[in-house]
């Protein structure tokens, strides 16, 4: 009479290796997780090559701001950022549709230009043009 061999192996699923892999994955994702920095994009106008300049007899309402290293000028008058904010608030209240030309010195830092553009946007002035002072 033949005797059937009974398997003595455990029927439990081997969890140890799966837990190892799972933890490795978890650690990988935790390490590679990067903090999201909220980025804003300030639109700047450049002349479109397809768009012909509009010819009008009417003189456009222009607001000229000059950005020099460490100094900002509004209509050729030096201003602190607070003064500029006050002046622009009044001007934006009068006409928010006016075109703003920000002339920037090549030596000025980018953050100085961004500060002015940000202020203009914050006041509702959206027609922003950037020119370069050579």
């Amino acid at each position: 009479m033949s005797k059937r061999r009974i398997s003595t192996e455990s029927l439990a699923i081997p969890m140890s290796s799966m837990i190892d892999v799972t933890f490795l994955l978890l650690i990988y994702f935790i390490i590679t997780q990067r903090e999201e920095i909220p980025e804003a994009h300030l639109a700047v106008n450049l002349p479109s090559p397809n768009q012909a300049p509009q010819k009008t007899d009417e003189k456009p309402n222009l607001l000229e701001i000059e950005v020099h290293p460490g100094q900002v000028y509004l209509k050729k008058m030096p201003q602190t950022m607070d003064q500029l904010q006050d002046m622009l608030t009044k001007m934006a209240a009068y006409d928010a549709e006016q075109t703003v030309i920000v002339k920037t010195s090549v030596q000025a830092q980018t953050q100085e230009l961004v500060r002015v553009l940000d202020l203009c946007k914050g006041l509702g002035l959206t027609k922003l043009n950037v020119m370069t002072l050579k």
């Binding site: 804003a40 090559p49 090549v106 030596q107 980018t110 230009l113």
Partner: peptide, 30 residues
């Protein structure tokens, strides 16, 4: 970079203009 002088940004803007593109945006941290 905020501390980069505008000359560098201007160079990029000119390259953008010469390529015929016109929608330029400056990125900043909100």
């Amino acid at each position: 970079d905020g501390t980069a002088i505008y000359r560098y940004v201007d160079g990029v803007m000119q390259a953008v203009g010469k390529s015929g593109m016109y929608r330029v945006k400056l990125s900043a941290v909100a």
